[in-house]
Write a protein that binds this DNA or RNA. Structure first.
Lengths: 159, 159
DNA sequence: GTATATTTGTTTACATGGAAACATTACAAA
DNA sequence: TTTGTAATGTTTCCATGTAAACAAATATAC
């Protein structure tokens, strides 16, 4: 007796339903894909996106306070404490408690930290170019602009 | 003797440098903001974005296999195992091992799971509307289209 | 001035998610 | 067949990130 077998759904047949128009879902997927590319390229150097962002902001804003850094990168203070401790242990970042406000902590790159950032700068920020072009250059520019507006980072131009 | 005090950097004065044009960074920031809104609205109901996505896909694709679901949502198989176990314990999802391939697991909503999805559908997918409009409707539509193209989900229409 | 509230960073305990090794089943080669 | 290889899901261990309670310093109210 023949049996009716339900067809097996393959990945590209999956009906994502309303997720098709869901911003949170699409942002998450996009981010995962970008990170995947990132690690495929740079994983071997032990560079991580979040860590390098932190160092970049300290590099660009010496004496920035830990809480300001955390808010700007949307990293929780509790987590920032741990991140900074690692950098301090590596000798890449120094912490100073300012006299004006002895609750705060001001951050600075050490000489080693500076060297690390500068030698890895291109490897890190030149990275986007290498990717498989999922969007045309015009589309990518458009998307970056929309994202900046979305996250309220429209002011000023890039480095 | 007067002392020269270095000006304290505030959040909106932070120079983000090349992160200004960095896709990974902007995507991450955008995603964090969307999730923040989401939890502000729906946190009290105990709904989580990832969980509801899983249920939605099982709802829209009954008998989908666990691995297919994982790949589509870019969730690692190891993690999917844990997610599905929770749904099973809650009585929202049932697992079946098909005869055609006894390694696989096919997923289905239980009656309770179906009820849960349907009663929470609007609360979940009607959510985007309520947000502070960071983008105009036209810009939002544009962004969704670009994101879909970016993540290769262009085919088909929503819902 | 003193009391209260807020800000800043840390600690601790927990939640979320991934990597690697594994067991089982299916497939391919000979 | 049987022998090796790949696919599927699970387990264990670890990394990343958050929540809540806390300590210290500052700001605010009276």
């Amino acid at each position: 007796m023949d049996q009716i077998i339900a067809p097996v759904i393959t990945v590209d047949q999956v009906d994502v339903g309303p997720l098709h128009g869901n911003l949170g879902f699409l942002l998450r997927m996009a981010q995962l894909q970008v990170y995947e590319d990132f690690y495929a390229d740079l994983g071997e150097y032990g560079l991580k996106p979040g860590e390098f962002s932190v160092l970049t902001l300290i590099y660009k804003n010496p004496h920035i306070r830990q809480g300001v850094l955390a808010r700007r990168l949307m990293i929780k203070r509790a987590h920032m404490t741990k991140l900074i401790r690692v950098f301090e242990d590596r000798g890449h970042v120094s912490r100073t408690i300012p006299d004006e406000d002895r609750r705060a902590v001001e951050l600075e790159l050490t000489a080693d930290g500076l060297k690390f950032v500068e030698t890895n700068w291109d490897r890190f920020y030149g990275h986007e170019k290498a990717q498989t072009p999922r969007l045309t250059p015009a589309e990518e520019k458009q998307m970056l602009g929309l994202l900046r507006k979305f996250v309220d980072l429209e002011q000023g131009d890039a480095q």
